[in-house]
Design a protein around this nucleic acid. Structure first.
Lengths: 253, 253
DNA sequence: AGGTCGAATTTGTATATACAATTTCGATAA
DNA sequence: TTATCGAAATTGTATATACAAATTCGACCT
């Protein structure tokens, strides 16, 4: 049985399909950064959509930073800028997906072991207390974009080792079972350690962005550190942004 | 007197003015989170704009997360976004002093010149509009810790060149005369350019942390970019933190 | 009372048209 | 050759109109 009218695959709006055709050409390398995009008029002729619809598609692409438009001159493919908005709020998988890439992760290690003294201090535990330690590699379209080295507090997330990585990132899991009350970030530029160079697909010594993130949850006796993570990104491939510009536009003066 | 034809104050587009009227009501507390926004039809009657124009205004507000729209139901003021915008970058002088070092700065260049196209875009000015450009080196105990490359909008800070660097940093000066309404940060790891290696006391290619900071102030016609700065720190000597851990401590478990 | 259906409301998308603003580029004049 | 002007090309905004899709709400029936 089943199905009656399979029918209506929810058709995407026309402006979205026009956007997609442009993005396809960019992602296939058919159009490269700096290249000129067909004019609205040409796209009207090509796609059959009205100019208003084509205009909306191109305007949204411009808002999203994928293309650059100059009145009177034309539209051009923008330089790829892997800027991520508010990384502390969205997990890396969402960010990659939002850019139209395919995200996957490979678990490199997952162990339970006693905390080293410094780790214990960072986690607010006694030294030697058991902690979970995971190391993952996040990839976008099979390209490494983040190495995640994480310590998890078993008092906050006792079932962390049972996490199903096929369905959820550690960040998403922790957010779900123990929403953070506070987050601390520290960022520094480092030279890619030789031990990570291969995993990240970089030359040893290449500049990398290291983000140390610590999250707290509310416990019965006060705030507890839920997790401490060091996230390492290839410096030239990733960008961390915080803060948002005002929304309403103003004409240039 | 006055003016003849004051002439053309560049009128903002109608859809932007409609956005502004809605944002004003939200920011004045006239409309609170969860409140219903007048329907498109009502806004058409109120503003005189066409429904397509009102629709664009509301759609952009929704894209920007300020409102929430439900087909068939209406439009509603969104919850203010998670406050975690806190990238409290204290100014470099305070940080150095807080660490017990002595801060000084050397002015490398200070000019007024026409904005390059890309710079103009970042500043929200017409290309070729005059901008102030300063380059400073901040030092802690005579050791370089930050190279500050800054563009300043003369419309916001016309007296910037008169700044007395012996008394104030550019950041402190701008904060004093034009408090920022919004700040945007982008951070990336870069290899130290050869041209800066000597000034920063580094080997070319050494990892550096580059922070791009953009600040806005409120103008009569809407937000204006006050300044765009790129701050370059030797990666191993500097650390940038954002977010704050909870203040109340708990004994380790 | 409860449920069902359908009309009214409201937002979402699409088009045709018009004019404005900016850049580009060629024609023309000095 | 150089400079200037203007037409053409291209994007930006605005409107009127139409229909689609989702929700709300009341009328009506049982």
């Amino acid at each position: 049985m089943d199905g009656p009218p399979p029918d209506h695959v929810p058709t995407r709006p026309l402006y979205a399909r026009v956007k997609r055709t442009i993005l396809d050409r960019i992602e296939r390398g058919d159009l490269n950064p700096g290249d000129r995009i067909p004019t609205e008029h040409a796209l009207v002729a090509e796609t059959g959509a009205s100019r208003m619809t084509v205009n909306r598609a191109l305007r949204e692409l411009a808002d999203e930073g994928r293309i650059h438009r100059i009145q009177g001159a034309g539209s051009f493919v923008a330089e790829p800028k892997p800027a991520s908005d508010l990384m502390e709020l969205r997990n890396i998988a969402d960010e990659i997906a939002a850019r139209g890439h395919r995200h996957d992760m490979r678990l490199l290690t997952l162990t339970e072991r006693p905390a080293q003294p410094e780790e214990a201090a960072r986690l607010g535990l006694r030294k030697g207390a058991p902690v979970f330690h995971s190391v993952l590699l996040h990839r976008a379209d099979a390209r490494p974009v983040q190495l995640e080295d994480r310590l998890v507090n078993p008092l906050v997330a006792p079932d962390y080792p049972a996490l199903d990585l096929a369905r959820e990132t550690p960040n998403a899991y922790l957010t779900r079972i123990a929403p953070a009350r506070a987050v601390e970030h520290a960022v520094e530029a480092i030279a890619c350690p030789g031990t990570l160079a291969e995993a990240l697909g970089l030359a040893p010594g290449a500049p990398c962005l290291a983000v140390d993130r610590r999250t707290w949850v509310d416990g019965t006796e006060g705030p507890r550190v839920a997790s401490v993570a060091r996230l390492i990104h290839p410096g030239t491939r990733y960008r961390l942004t915080a803060g948002r510009p005002p929304t309403d536009r103003v004409s240039p003066l």
